[in-house]
Design a protein around this nucleic acid. Structure first.
Lengths: 190, 190
DNA sequence: TGTCATAACTAACACTTGTTAGTTTATAGA
DNA sequence: TCTATAAACTAACAAGTGTTAGTTATGACA
């Protein structure tokens, strides 16, 4: 049986390289060098460069989708749901810091799985927007433009991978709390 | 004299392509096709692919730096300075929507100009953080973690290019106002 | 009309790309 | 010890890369 851990190492290394240069700029020879082997040897473990991207992106995207479904099905208030989304992003980003780069920046290079990815993404954003709109209707949230609220929160959360590595000392719970405070309560001292 | 407008068209088209696929994935033949000519003909107007990236990225980065210097030198309150930063991003993004993609995602492919770019970027972030820290000291801003505040605002502002094209109907002033409201005052109805 | 610059073209270059074929080495179980 | 398998290797391919050289068509102006 081929070693699954070896394949996993390759995927992790690929994710790290994709983060630093982007999918297109990373060559199989780059990846091989980082793994301390020759490019051809990679194909004992994986079937193509595209498979690497697909594995990374689709796996994480599905984790987000599952998390969002749970949140939406829960009985929390809408504000509490937003806080749960923040925690979801912090948690997944902590687990897949490098992979988040590909998810954010290289999804357009997916081939077979592009449509599937876009479907997951649309579902996620629709749910997010839905929670905000319900929050406005129930007067938990100010009657601002819901799309701008979502855009503002989501882009911050999507960029966490760039920034969390530098802040390793903050644990996940503290970071979630801080982010929720800032994004939900604002920064102004009133 | 070679037509500057032709060169400008090429740069604009390059920025559009860079936005959709990233610098590395765009070939000179892609660019030529989009310009309705052959790849070799591009070199009557530009000297290299790298020059395209450099022109796009450095030009916009310098615009940000200049804007930030003006804001910092102004006599506004710190909250007003933050609002001015929001307006700066909205304004520059409206003017260089496609170029913002390269600025955000492809700066690492700069060669000669990488160091210069990083210098501008560091200066910008230092100023941003400085304003937040002064705002906290003067009790305009809640005593939250200033780096998280900057991260949250800056990533939202840097991602505007992805989202503004879909919201063409909002004019710049309205958008700046909405963003400032959400990021500074928060979204919760108290 | 002849001259010259602009801006397009074709053809080709040297190099890099992802990937395949075929081979060798090391290790674990019979 | 023999055998099977995993996992590395060398060598090479066909296609694609950025870029250069040399040529041609167009139009402005003396």
């Amino acid at each position: 049986m081929k070693s699954e851990t070896r394949k996993n190492d390759i995927i992790k290394t690929a994710a790290k390289l994709f983060k630093s240069k982007g999918y297109s700029a990373v060559t199989m020879r780059d990846l091989a060098t980082a793994m301390d082997m020759k490019a051809a040897s990679l194909y004992n473990h994986i079937s193509s460069k595209q498979e690497l991207l697909k594995t990374i992106v689709v796996f994480i995207a599905e984790e987000f989708t599952n998390g969002m479904r749970q949140i939406q099905a829960s009985e929390k208030s809408n504000i509490a749901k937003l806080k749960a989304i923040v925690a979801l992003h912090v948690e997944i980003t902590a687990k897949h810091t490098n992979g988040m780069a590909a998810l954010n920046n290289d999804w357009m290079h997916l081939e077979d799985q592009l449509e599937h990815y876009l479907q997951l993404r649309t579902e996620y954003e629709t749910s997010f927007l839905d929670i905000i709109e319900h929050g406005i209707a129930s007067e938990e949230i100010k009657p601002s433009n819901p799309e701008i609220i979502m855009f503002s929160m989501l882009t911050t959360l999507r960029s966490l991978y760039l920034w969390m590595p530098k802040k390793g000392r903050l644990n996940s719970q503290e970071l979630s709390q801080n982010l929720s405070d800032i994004m939900i309560d604002g920064i102004i001292k009133s």
